[in-house]
């Protein structure tokens, strides 16, 4: 087909690419910065250097913050998936007005501004004695991640014909056997997506962590934040670059797997 190159088209194409550049460049600029040979944040002067990557892997504080973020994220993913799935399946079985209201209440953490939410966490966690504990962070993150899990499980269950669990019951399966045999398999794709979302929510979260932790608990976002506050250490750029790379790799794998899935 002939490419039409009207002025109109050129105008909009240029605009679109500029918006895209505006979105991506601030992210990509961390890559050259991370390879700088200087000891402050800036572009490489003489040569490219991996010294700030080495610094990251040799610094216990960075490694422990990373490890904390990972395991907290995994625990949050498991907790939020279990709770969110249970909630979604329960609502699906009821599917009455009360369950609709419950669904709305559960997604409020998405609607409330993070600062307000974090203030709430802070007040409550003081009372509960959870300030500056890993348990406190896990609990807060689980609450923040729950809506994502329940929404994706709801989406997966929307495809489940309500007659299928009925069939299982009529064939002699108890409610619990029915859930295991036919409801959970239908919810599985949603649980997987929801679990990944929950991990990302936790891994990425900083506002809450700043409110409810002091010295004991340090997650990667908090460490990056402190790194900028205290010094202008280019290690931050190397951490950021690794996260960007990780994101790109995961995205590519996801797209590739989905295309494979479509073929079968």
């Amino acid at each position: 087909m002939m490419q039409q190159t009207s002025g109109f088209r050129i105008f909009f194409m240029t605009g679109a690419w500029m918006v895209l550049a505006f979105l991506l460049l601030p992210i990509l600029v961390v890559i050259p910065v991370s390879l700088t040979d200087t000891s402050y944040i800036g572009l490489p002067k003489e040569e490219l250097s991996l010294q700030h990557y080495v610094a990251y892997f040799q610094d216990d504080r960075w490694l422990s913050a990373t490890w904390t973020s990972i395991w907290v994220g995994l625990v949050v993913a498991v907790c939020a998936t279990v709770l969110g799935t249970t909630f979604a399946i329960g609502c699906w079985f009821l599917s009455n007005r009360a369950s609709t209201i419950a669904r709305w209440i559960l997604i409020t953490p998405i609607l409330v501004p993070p600062v307000v939410q974090s203030l709430g966490f802070y007040r409550f966690w003081v009372t509960l004695g959870l300030i500056d504990t890993h348990g406190g962070v896990i609990l807060a993150h689980t609450l923040l991640a729950l809506p994502y899990v329940s929404i994706s499980v709801f989406a997966a269950l929307a495809n489940l014909d309500p007659r299928i669990p009925q069939a299982a019951r009529s064939l002699g399966a108890s409610v619990w056997q029915t859930v295991r045999a036919v409801v959970l398999p239908a919810a599985k794709p949603g649980m997987l997506t929801g679990g990944i979302f929950a991990f990302i929510v936790s891994f990425d979260e900083i506002v809450g962590v700043l409110f409810i932790t002091v010295r004991n608990v340090s997650t990667l976002p908090k460490k990056i934040w402190e790194g900028i506050q205290e010094s202008i250490d280019p290690t931050i750029a190397s951490v950021a670059t690794m996260l960007v790379m990780l994101t790109i790799v995961v995205t590519i794998i996801t797209i590739w797997r989905r295309r494979d899935g479509d073929l079968t």
Binding site: I164, Q166, A167
Partner: peptide
Amino acid sequence: FQGYALFP
């Protein structure tokens, strides 16, 4: 059932 309701 009308929609067969086989376990997919």
